[in-house]
Design a protein around this nucleic acid. Structure first.
Lengths: 348, 348
DNA sequence: CGCAGTGGTGCAAAGGTTTGCAGCGAAGAA
DNA sequence: TTCTTCGCTGCAAACCTTTGCACCACTGCG
């Protein structure tokens, strides 16, 4: 039913190869012929079949984007940015959600492998070695993780955590908790390392609570533990957890920031809407999405997948840039001076 | 470099057609042969090329999902549900974001058409006639809109709006505003119609403000207009706008729910986290996603796209079910009794 | 007049898979 | 024994497009 290149050829009285060229290399065909072909194509509603094209060119003009949880407001801006950048270059983005499950993640990347030209692995939960393995099957750019030998775009959450801790130190806090994120998260390790170092050099105690589900629920579930730990400030793995925690503390009768200061990470749109407005480490998610697409497409345009032999030994184009994007602490209303010792049941 | 069906055939000493059958119709091949082939395939890391398969079967095993704004928390649950349901049936979901732009929407559906077996049009902004047109190019299921002759899954926002208005009437409100959503939204029209009817029969005034961008910003921008209108309660097009409005009213010194009651629509996760917690009309988004996938896949499995002629006249299998899912009002803290007349500057 | 160059077009192979049909050997029936 | 039947496998066409190569008719130059 849908018109093929052959129908157009028949209708316009030329060979199919001429029709093909009319679309993929217009400068090679006589202007008169071209307009005739285009007219017929328009007439028949012809649109090139991308699958067939992919089969022979080895490029699908699709890229896959695998995220841990599309419902986490951290991801949509990244997805939108990636989509926009991809669209500029006539690519489409295939978004898939793993529900924070490393196994689903692997399945998905395999399933995607053959129908995309490359995959963006965003905040992966699988092991580095697995990532290296799949990267042999399909070009990969990793977001929010450092993997040796692979192109990566990271956000400097280490710096962010340091700023956050220093902000808290400046407000007089000396007992601070870090709400850990999910197992397998690179961000989590980086934050932990940086926060521990900053706390130590500031003479403060850092209690690590976790791992936790990186959601409101996960954050809320730690409220009791936070209270028992007697800290006066908390740095959460992300904004969602921070908001959940604030809610949970509220239910326990602890107020933010009077009793406990809370800092999140990501600066999701929502963090400006809650009360109190959330102090948070803003991450450049849109920039990360754009950059990752650029890296994939560049890293990928030099060697069409189904390349017909003749290729250089393969492996020589390993530029594998790794870029680190800056984060910035945004101070809002969920942080305040440390409460007077003893006023709130720190040790109680 | 990636192993093809031919490599596996060579390695296991059978014809490629046997390998093909091993994967697509295992019962047709001798168990011994099968295990040998599977072993070789495993060994070579062979995975069927979906593009090539699509070329001949006419089915890509992908479905497209077009949403207006992936950053709107209304969509992720729907997307996740659709993905889950699709995955069960060995389909993948291709998500694309139109940024609320009807033109981008049309482009996208055309671009997607050839690489998916069907498209889910979620909260479309384009005209009905355009939708009918694209539905001739690729099977379509429409979500959140009623289009004659096309399978649709809708949420009963009319009922929801009615409940919301009645809730407000019960609290004594008589001057109510409806914050309209974007132009072209079916939901918007339905809400408006139902809200107007409910208000009229309750003896209340309904002021319609809009259209507006269906975002926090869009909601916040109406705060001034809401104040000037002198209403004591507002029903917003969605939760995001409701939250933005609350924020905006706060900036004007009006408190929710003491001075103004606010109701949203969608019951996004976030509406439980804000203060005050939002009273809202909960929509069954996950169910909508699942249902839409089911309808598409059923409606679609009877006639493989590239069907080799012989087909019945085409158009006879128009079952075109249209399902309406129920909504329910969730009362939380953003609604309260109407303020005493005159206490708040209604007419001022 | 001959020849090289050039712009436009056709030819056919290739890409990886599915599938209707035919063929083969063995088992069962007559 | 001969004829079916049946389970399994091979053959080859088909899906739609791209692209290197060959071909043709001109043009312009020597």
């Amino acid at each position: 039913m849908p018109a093929t290149i052959r129908d157009v050829a028949r209708a316009s009285g030329v060979h199919i190869s001429t029709v093909s060229r009319t679309f993929s290399a217009p400068h090679l065909v006589n202007p008169e012929t071209r307009v005739r072909v285009l007219a017929c194509a328009e007439d028949l509603g012809y649109r090139p079949n991308r699958a067939a094209r992919a089969l022979i060119t080895g490029r699908t003009h699709n890229i896959g984007l695998i995220v841990a949880d599309i419902a986490n407001p951290f991801f949509p801006p990244l997805i939108k940015a990636a989509e926009g950048q991809a669209r500029h270059r006539d690519y489409h983005v295939f978004v898939a959600d793993t529900n924070e499950d490393p196994v689903a993640e692997e399945d998905l990347v395999h399933a995607l492998a053959k129908q995309v030209d490359g995959v963006l692995l965003c905040s992966p939960r699988m092991s580095n070695s697995l990532i290296e393995q799949v990267s042999r099957e399909v070009p990969v750019v990793v977001i929010n993780r450092q993997v040796a030998g692979l192109p990566c775009v990271m956000m400097d959450v280490g710096q962010g955590a340091r700023s956050a801790i220093e902000h808290l130190l400046g407000l007089g806090h000396r007992r601070i908790a870090l709400l850990g994120g999910p197992r397998g998260s690179w961000t989590n390790r980086e934050m932990r390392r940086a926060a521990a170092a900053a706390a130590r050099s500031g003479g403060a105690d850092l209690t690590v609570l976790g791992p936790n589900q990186p959601t409101e629920t996960g954050g809320g579930a730690t409220a009791e533990a936070v209270r028992r730990s007697g800290v006066t400030a908390v740095l959460a793995y992300n904004d969602l957890m921070a908001l959940g925690l604030i809610e949970g503390l509220d239910a326990l009768g602890l107020r933010v920031p009077q009793d406990v200061s809370v800092i999140g990470v990501d600066d999701i749109a929502l963090s400006r809407l809650t009360r109190p407005k959330l102090t948070t480490v803003a991450t450049p998610t849109a920039a990360a999405g754009r950059t990752a697409v650029d890296m994939l497409l560049q890293h990928d345009s030099d060697a069409p997948r189904g390349a017909r032999g003749r290729g250089a030994a393969a492996g020589d184009r390993r530029t594998t840039a790794q870029v680190m994007l800056q984060t910035v602490l945004v101070v809002r209303d969920s942080t305040g001076p440390a409460p007077e010792p003893g006023r709130n049941g720190a040790g109680a």
